[in-house]
Design a protein around this nucleic acid. Structure first.
Length: 1024
RNA sequence: GAUCCCGUGGUCCAGCGGCAACGACGGCCGGUUUACACCCGGGCAACGAUGGUUCGAGUCCAUCCGGGAUCACCA
């Protein structure tokens, strides 16, 4: 009857088997259901280009723990999965491949073709990363898999954009972008890197003029720059307002000799730093972020762009037009020198920004972009109908701040709400356009040159537009506000209505789009920032803007689990979008987990090459081991360091990763054992077909693997002893003390674990489970059960308790270690399908849908726990004595215990356990017990035990040991007495603390007395 | 530069004002009898520095030192 189990748990077999089983049974599928309460989590969608790394493993394990736990609690649990199109990263990957494989740029294929290729790429990599998440055991509802670019999300994006446009929250503005002149595209900050580069540092001077149009004063003003060519686009010279050297020059002007433009000398405390350079700085708003900011503060100076997209100088550069910017630099320097205005050049090392893709220097470049207004809205009125009340008052940022301030959204740990609030408080407008082809195309059509053509043509066009606006008022918004002020002049000198129109079309109105195009509108070529679609994730995945039953049932979701680096980019924006679109926060809780750092305390990243591939860990230690460790290290405070080793692919030696292996691009390590080279492993291996790649390992995961195996073997022990198992009720009051003890501990543990999970204390929860399983159930209860399993009378009961407790352990551990739990559960179901805990009945057909345990508070029995604890103390102490005097376990020891009558009764009742656990032969106990000659003494507050050791003690050595011990005790006693003689301690400390100290003194005195009497005896013996 | 986080045995960590600081890994000693050498028992070993608050500080406050993260910036 006994089902045979292998001696060791085989994670691989279990993983494959149960993933299939769970999937077939649709345990993780959820539909709205009126009888149950929902519990919803949306996954932070991983990037489709990415491979799973440790951060994903941590993030998704924690979500899975929560969702599995709530599912067991009877909630209708939905974990919505999906992936993110991640505009820049994904397009960059495909473009890079295009360049490598076919030596083409995206301009060589066309927009449609590039997008088609990216979709192909996406399908392939989405499959991979979703497969990896499944391997992790994530219990997502895979039937609901979403993608931020799929039709459902696209519709939500269009609807949101349309509404915001209508409400006047989306506007057109200028912004400096990182311009890659080689690829002629803008690149995101995280697609650039900064490298120290040798550069010149030139100093020039301008002649100062008395004021606009006035003549030269004869004075010169000196300034330095690393980019002399930008001088052509300067619109001011700036000094610090309190800089005495230049105060008198403020308001005067200079003329840039090379372009003959007169520009003012202005004061700006934020831009100019008197301690740097000459203290005077040229201002080039179109080509420097700081200067741009300065021009925002001083709009009168203006902005002049001098660059073409290819990095050559444009018509604003006068005679330098057409020159490459570096050629122009040389020319400018030479010309200034010829004019006698060149003061000198130094060589300097400066940090220069490069494009990661073309490896060429970035140029800051001013361009037209779309923005979302975050700050206060202009006074109500105007064209915006303001259909959505939340945005009406303080603007989007304010609205999202309030959701956290008034507790609708709570952060765990709470301190992270500071990052959220601080960032939103800046109310910086959000630039949402990206010069890419992969993403949601901006749904705005532009008519640039409405005023071109004959008067009749213009009239016809404008008339047609007017018709469209009236006819399609519901789905078409035309914004003219931007250019209202700039009246255009028609070909015949007449004043026209604004010459540029921006039309935004609601989703699902393709016919309107075509009609717009027919009268000369062209769709904006840019796409939206990825976060624009990500921010809609909690409601777009549920079907919004349709009023779906899913949206009504699952929204708002319960908790968002993420890492702290996207609190601003993502969390804050989701709150904004949720409130704006649905009128409700997207989630009630935000749990921010720690980060996993490498062995040297640094964050893991692709560029550092210091990641760990979770699949290697799964391969070597099992998924449950990985998950156990992820949960175990999720404490509230610390990020965790994770030292890692490479497993040499030639000889299987573990080669610890050293810091020098990480320095950017170390791609080769030599095995210290077999001296052969290999490539270090990780989630981001470089392409290098020449070398075999190592797998990764880290002994941090031993504990997890060992625990899975421990569970397995505890189950194995039970199954070997379940012959004749009969289900039946368990009533603690009828059970022997050890049973009542383990049930008491189980009830305590279960309550604690539930509470810990409710507070997102993952690490503490798994600690409790681990401790209970290993140190109480396995180490003590299973050992104590062995006698009764052999005994006809007790066997039935103890089997039921063993099965019941194991059942509960499996339920508790399932959220964290589902595979081993299911393996054991299924085996147990074959032998003991009907169990007695927590309720009598047939066990569920899978542990993943089993009920979360909960036990009567009455089972918690402090008196019983104390009695077993006393026995454990005795056993531990006898073991210690045995160890100290090197007594074989096979040699029974005789023990006498002096203790109260009731304690003696307990000890006698527990004698079989004391005998088997500590190898005790005869046990005498009672108040009158005396110390036999030549015995070791165990002193405990409740008893004193003597272990007979005739002939086994070396009196001389023992005297030394006891003297040392005595000295320590005396010292401690003195310290405690001193504390008690301190009047303020006795006065001010709580009574129980004082009493503790008093009890402690008594205890110490007893111990000292015992040691002294033992010493006396031993000294006597030593003399003989 | 601003904000935040963290410094505890050799390594990785717990600790949320009160009996001589919890574990894991490694190293040490010993054992392994009918679940488990991925086992069992035992022992060794630690609060970054200086001040302060308090009867009492690893824990709270300040300063410093060291590490990290985020944001800004370096003419």
């Amino acid at each position: 009857m006994a089902t045979e189990l292998a001696k060791q748990y085989d994670p691989k077999e279990a993983q494959q088997r149960w993933l299939h089983f769970w999937n077939e049974n649709k345990f993780f599928h959820s539909d709205p259901d009126a009888n149950r309460k929902p519990f919803t989590i949306v996954i932070p969608p991983p990037n489709v280009t990415g491979a799973l790394h440790m951060g994903h493993a941590l993030n998704n394990t924690l979500q899975d723990v929560l969702i599995r736990w709530r599912r067991m609690q009877g909630y209708n649990a939905l974990w919505m999965p999906g992936t993110d199109h991640a505009g820049i990263a994904t397009q960059a990957m495909v473009e890079r491949r295009l360049a490598e494989d076919e030596k083409k740029t995206r301009h060589d294929v066309d927009r449609d073709e590039l997008v088609r290729r990216i979709w192909q790429w996406k399908d392939q990599y989405e499959k991979r990363i979703i497969g990896q998440l499944r391997e992790l055991g994530c219990s997502c509802d895979w039937e609901r898999l979403r993608f931020t670019l799929d039709p459902m999300c696209a519709r939500a994006v269009r609807q949101t954009f349309f509404q915001m446009f209508k409400d006047g929250l989306i506007f057109r503005g200028k912004r400096l972008v990182n311009w890659d002149t080689h690829l002629q595209t803008s690149v995101a900050d995280d697609e650039t890197y900064t490298e120290d580069t040798k550069s010149g540092f030139w100093t020039f001077k301008y002649q100062v003029r008395g004021g606009p149009g006035a003549s030269a004063t004869g004075e010169f003003i000196r300034f330095s720059t690393t980019r002399p060519e930008t001088m052509l686009g300067d619109t001011a010279v700036c000094v610090h307002p309190s800089d005495e050297r230049y105060k008198h020059l403020i308001g005067k002007t200079v003329t840039i000799p090379l372009v003959h433009r007169e520009i003012p000398i202005i004061a700006d405390g934020l831009l100019a730093d008197p301690t740097l350079g000459t203290g005077c700085v040229k201002v080039t708003p179109a080509h420097d972020p700081n200067d741009y900011a300065c021009s925002q503060r001083n709009p009168q100076i203006g902005i002049i762009n001098i660059l073409n997209p290819d990095g050559t100088i444009n018509e604003n550069g006068g005679k330098y037009k057409g020159l490459d910017r570096y050629k122009a630099r040389e020319a400018v320097v030479a010309d200034m020198e010829a004019l006698g205005l060149f003061e000198g050049k130094e060589e300097r090392i400066i940090p220069l920004k490069y494009s990661d893709r073309s490896k060429t220097p970035i140029e800051p470049y001013l361009s037209d972009q779309w923005f979302v207004k975050m700050g206060d809205l202009p006074a109500a009125g105007g064209e915006a109908p303001n259909a959505t009340p939340p945005a009406a008052n303080g603007g989007l940022a304010r609205m999202a701040m309030e959701a956290v301030e008034n507790g609708q959204v709570k952060f765990f740990p709470e301190r992270y709400k500071n990052s959220y609030l601080d960032w939103l408080a800046e109310k910086r407008d959000w630039c949402i356009s990206r010069q890419l082809w992969w993403g949601h195309r901006i749904p705005v059509w532009v008519m640039m040159d409405a005023a071109k053509g004959s008067l009749d043509e213009i009239k016809a066009r404008l008339g047609r537009l007017k018709e469209l606006r009236t006819k399609y008022a519901q789905v078409l918004v035309v914004n003219t506000a931007e250019t209202e002020a700039a009246k255009a002049v028609g070909p015949h000198g007449q004043e026209l209505t604004p010459f540029r129109f921006l039309a935004c079309v609601a989703p699902g109105a393709e016919d309107v789009e075509r009609e717009l195009e027919a009268i000369g509108f062209v769709q904006d070529p840019d796409v939206l920032d990825t976060w624009f679609s990500s921010m809609l994730w909690p409601h777009s995945t549920l079907g919004w803007p349709e009023k779906t039953s899913e949206l009504a049932y699952y929204y708002p979701t319960n908790v968002l689990v993420t890492s702290r680096d996207i609190i601003t980019l993502w969390v804050a924006r989701m709150v904004i979008a949720g409130l704006y679109n649905v009128g409700k926060v997207p989630f009630h809780h935000v749990y921010i987990h720690s980060k996993i750092l490498d062995g040297f305390g640094e964050g893991m990243s692709k560029s550092k090459g210091n990641g760990i591939d979770p699949l290697d860990i799964i391969d070597r230690y099992g998924t449950d081991a990985l998950r156990f460790i992820m949960v175990h290290l999720s404490t509230e405070t610390q990020d965790s360091k994770m030292p890692v080793a490479n497993v040499c692919p030639h000889c299987d030696t573990l080669v610890p990763v050293k810091q020098e292996h990480l320095s950017m691009r170390t791609r080769k390590v030599t095995c210290p054992n077999c001296k052969k080279p290999f490539r270090p492993g990780g989630p981001w291996p470089a392409a290098d077909p020449e070398l075999p790649t190592a797998k990764q390992a880290s002994d941090r995961f031993d504990q997890g693997r060992n625990f899975a195996n421990k569970l397995w073997n505890a189950a194995r022990f039970l199954l070997l002893n379940l012959e004749g198992y009969r289900p039946g009720a368990i009533r603690p009051e009828e059970l022997p003390i050890e049973d009542r003890w383990i049930l008491s501990r189980l009830a305590t543990t279960t309550a604690a674990v539930t509470e810990m999970l409710e507070g997102y204390k993952f690490s503490e929860a798994i600690r409790h489970i681990y401790e209970f399983t290993w140190s109480e159930f396995c180490d003590w209860y299973v050992e104590m059960s062995k006698g009764r399993l052999r005994d006809e009378a007790g066997r039935g009961t103890v089997q039921r308790v063993l099965v019941g407790v194991l059942d509960a352990i499996l339920r508790l551990v399932q959220p964290v270690m589902p595979f081993v739990a299911e393996s054991i559960w299924q085996t147990l179901n074959e032998v003991a399908p009907e169990r007695s805990l927590p309720l009598a009945g047939i066990a569920e057909r899978s542990v993943v849908i089993a009920a979360w345990p909960s036990f009567p508070a009455a089972w918690i029995d402090a008196a019983t726990e104390a009695r077993i604890a006393r026995m454990q103390e005795l056993v531990r102490n006898v073991r210690e004595v045995r160890n100290r005097y090197m007594v074989d376990v096979k040699t029974p020891l005789n023990v006498s215990v002096r203790c109260s009558v009731s304690a003696a009764d307990d000890f006698r009742a527990l004698q079989p356990f004391i005998a088997s656990l500590a190898g005790v032969g005869a046990l005498h106990c009672g108040p009158d017990t005396t110390k036999p000659r030549q015995s070791a003494t165990i002193v405990h507050p409740e008893f004193e035990a003597y272990v007979s050791l005739a002939g086994l003690i070396d009196p001389t050595a023992e005297v030394k040991r006891l003297e040392k011990q005595l000295a320590e005790k005396v010292k401690h006693l003195q310290g405690t007495r001193a504390k008690l003689s301190n009047a303020s301690f006795v006065d001010k400390a709580p009574a129980d603390v004082v009493q503790q100290q008093r009890d402690f003194v008594v205890e110490l005195q007893n111990q000292i007395q015992t040691i002294e009497s033992n010493l006396k005896e031993l000294r006597h013996a030593a003399q003989e």
